[in-house]
Amino acid sequence: MDPHDAVGPAGSRVTIPVTEDLVRGALELERTPHGIRPHRLPAWARAQCADGQLLLAESQPSGVRLVLRTRATMIELETLRTTIAYRGAPPRPDGVYDLLVDGELAGRGSVTGGNVLLVDMLSGDRELRPGPSGTVRFTGLPDRVKDVEIWLPHNEITELVALRADAQAEPVPPGTRRVWVHHGSSISHGSNAASPTTTWPALTAALGGVELVNLGLSGSALLDPFTARTIRDTPADLLSLKLGINVVNSDLMRLRAFGPAVHGFLDTIRDGHPTTPLLVVSPVLCPIHEDTPGPGAPEFDAATGTVRFRATGDPRESGKLTLRVIRDELSRIVAERAASDENLYHLDGLRLYGEAELPLPDRLHPDAATHRRIGERFAGLVFGEGGPFAGPPCPIRPQ
């Protein structure tokens, strides 16, 4: 239905069906007893790995947004969220919904209630405590036909229960903007960012004028073959991979396995995207793992209610991976492959966040200000003039 048409009586609401053509940034929509749950990995990929961290990360909808054209002045979204709580720690901040009107930030909000996944960081035990759905409401929107985006919280599993407004809506036709598929770790996922449009990939996408598909998977950028096949099968004009930190802090593999795993990951992606610009990004600075291998371990300070991380590996063990080793290996691999792949590029992560920067509050993840810094630098180096993803400028400004 045309959004100019059929507004109900004053103060009335219409329910807008949440269909696939309203959702961007998700690779699959699962129908649940409550509504629709967006996923960033398809079911066949999830079936190949029962790791709880991976399944949690991919179901947190970083970069996923509802996009609709409407003249509504009020829009509300009912959702059932699942939040994470750590035993003994203070409550984490509520996830944030960002609403954009014609590309400009026009509102922010959160929902209450929802399920709580209680995690014991020392034992790894988990307990799910169910709760009710909640509603985020945006009012006072311009009384004209406009494009509206509702970005879902990047750090809360979100089931879409109902979308309501005071006017009808329709999908926004696909535009001409290029699609950027990015894969990385918790920093790419958005850990400690202030909101879903201020994760560094979302900021970069706005500056670069591209449509984002964010496959940043907290704790799970581990060169898994199913992730490579997912990227292979996802339509994209631009591809980037930020690799290394999770391989180190999970102590997943030794140097002997890392190189072939990177080659295999790239080979699989190239099977589906043989000439697509592909950027490999090495890790940003993380002092605890620069010269000390993993595994990483959390340390909970009950007095302050904070969690910080430390590296526990022994650098004297043969083949152990540190971030310095990873950066050298990625640089070597890309240089060798680029001799026969003119669309393959490398970016040293220290150019995004390096020495003499703002400290990492928990020794592992950047804060909101650093997300902005990384996003702006990535946009300048990669999407700017002379960068591997350089293209037409974008009229949409980051929030």
Rank of each mutant, 00 (worst) to 15 (best):
G95Y: 03
L118E: 09
P132H: 11
E127P: 08
L77W: 09
G134V: 13
G114A: 01
G103N: 13
R69W: 03
E156V: 03
S110I: 00
L66D: 13
I84M: 15
I75S: 06
T135F: 10
L152I: 02
Q53W: 06
G114Q: 02
I84C: 15
S110D: 06
M121S: 12
L160P: 11
L80W: 07
Q53D: 15
V116G: 10
L56D: 11
V148P: 07
L54W: 04
R137G: 00
E149L: 04
L77A: 12
R69Y: 03
D147S: 12
A162G: 01
S133M: 07
L100V: 00
Q60M: 15
R92D: 09
S59R: 14
E104Q: 13
T73Y: 04
L128I: 10
E76I: 02
Y97D: 07
G63H: 01
P91V: 01
T139P: 00
V64E: 09
L128K: 15
N115S: 15
S133F: 04
K146M: 10
T82Q: 07
N155V: 11
D143K: 07
V145P: 01
L141H: 09
A106V: 05
R144Y: 00
E104M: 11
T83M: 04
M74L: 15
G140A: 00
T158M: 03
Y86E: 12
A162C: 01
D98I: 08
T112H: 03
P132N: 08
R69I: 05
Y86M: 07
G131W: 02
R69M: 15
L55T: 09
E58S: 08
R65Y: 12
A57R: 04
I75H: 01
S123Q: 10
Y97R: 04
N115G: 15
L100D: 06
A85F: 09
R81W: 00
